[in-house]
Amino acid sequence: PPSLSSTVAPPSLPPYFIKGSIIQLADGELKRVEDLKTEDFIQSAEISTELKIDSSTVERIEGSHTSPNFAVVQFSVGEHRAQVSVEVLVEYPFFVFGQGWSSCCPDRTTQLLELPCTKLSVGDVCISLTLKNLR
């Protein structure tokens, strides 16, 4: 078969999802990625001058047309319920409100990153970022 064209997502996972990675919160506190809680993101966004947290509800999860290693996740974002689709590696973790790290293929996430992870499902509400209104 012909080679696949490039996809919108990076070919490998970013290093900060590996268990033990040190994350700096907006107030300067350092935490390991696996220890992050919903409140850490909320409090960091409150301090941030540019970023705010949106609630992004998973509306659909399907396999990518370009590669079996990728999935397309469709979100309903924010109060206006804007529809946004992202193509990600199946092991790419999202942070679900009140629950923690979740991915389309949690076994792979745990295997590759050692990051404790649950299965991302339709209806899950993920933390996403958007810009604060700058007027």
Binding site: S21, I23, Q24, L36, F41, S44, V77, V86, L129
Partner: peptide, 19 residues
Amino acid sequence: VPVFPWHSLVPFLEPSQSG
């Protein structure tokens, strides 16, 4: 040891403009 900012970990999803 590298230190990563908190906002790297969650996706930036830009909702469509309205209002």
